[in-house]
Simulated assay, not measured.
Amino acid sequence: MTQYLISFEKGAMDHIPAEDFPDVGRAAHAVIQETKRAGVYVYGGGLSYDDGDVEWGVVATDGTVADGPGPGGKELIGGLTIVDVPTREAALEWAAKIAVACRCAQDVRKFGFDPER
């Protein structure tokens, strides 16, 4: 089996009206429960940026720490799910379900193989 990161960018759900978020949350949780029942769930969650507390940052190669995004305004992950599935097609199928539930496009990337994993 191979692990895939399914993710979406911070702000990808900004188009959703506030009153729809409970429905989106229920739909997203239902898909995650489905991944768990299927035995492919590894990890997942949403990332917080707007709670007023700086709980994230970038650590440079010299060890200095900066709050916020790194140089060049790199894209930030808004949420992620990791699945362990037999094929890329299976990962894309799960990503499609998550995209529908979250009402936003999903990025799918294969984790590099680590023989000691």
Rank of each mutant, 00 (worst) to 15 (best):
M1E: 10
Q3A: 08
Q3R: 13
Q3C: 08
Y4S: 00
Y4E: 02
L5E: 02
I6L: 14
S7V: 05
S7W: 03
S7D: 00
S7K: 08
F8C: 02
E9A: 15
K10F: 12
K10S: 07
A12I: 09
A12L: 03
A12Q: 09
A12D: 08
D14P: 09
D14V: 03
D14S: 14
I16A: 10
P17Q: 08
A18N: 06
A18W: 02
E19K: 11
E19F: 03
E19A: 15
E19V: 04
D20P: 02
D20S: 05
F21L: 14
F21Q: 11
F21H: 11
P22V: 06
P22M: 04
D23W: 04
V24F: 09
G25F: 08
G25C: 07
G25Q: 11
A28E: 06
V31P: 04
V31C: 08
V31H: 10
I32C: 08
I32Q: 12
Q33H: 12
E34F: 05
E34S: 13
K36I: 14
R37I: 07
R37G: 13
A38N: 08
G39V: 04
G39P: 01
Y41R: 01
Y41C: 07
G44P: 09
G45E: 12
G45W: 14
G45V: 13
G46C: 15
L47V: 15
L47G: 06
S48E: 15
S48K: 15
D50Q: 14
D50Y: 11
D50M: 09
D50G: 15
D51T: 05
D51V: 05
G52Y: 07
G52S: 00
D53V: 12
V54G: 03
G57F: 06
G57D: 03
V58A: 11
V58E: 11
V58Y: 13
V59I: 13
V59T: 09
D62G: 05
G63W: 14
T64K: 11
T64P: 01
V65K: 03
D67Q: 09
G68K: 01
G68H: 00
P69W: 01
G70T: 10
P71N: 12
P71C: 03
G72T: 01
G72W: 06
G73S: 03
G73I: 00
K74V: 00
E75A: 12
E75G: 10
L76V: 02
I77Y: 06
G78K: 05
G79Y: 05
G79K: 00
G79D: 01
G79W: 08
L80E: 05
L80M: 13
I82E: 07
V83M: 00
V83K: 01
D84F: 00
V85M: 02
P86N: 01
P86M: 04
R88C: 04
E89H: 08
E89D: 12
L92H: 10
E93Y: 12
A95K: 02
A95C: 02
A96S: 09
A96G: 09
K97L: 12
K97I: 11
I98P: 01
I98N: 10
I98V: 07
V100D: 15
V100K: 15
A101G: 04
A101S: 10
R103Q: 14
C104T: 15
A105V: 04
Q106Y: 01
V108P: 05
R109H: 11
R109D: 05
K110T: 01
G112H: 08
G112N: 09
G112V: 09
F113D: 03
D114K: 02
D114Y: 06
P115I: 11
P115L: 15
P115C: 01
E116L: 14
R117Q: 13
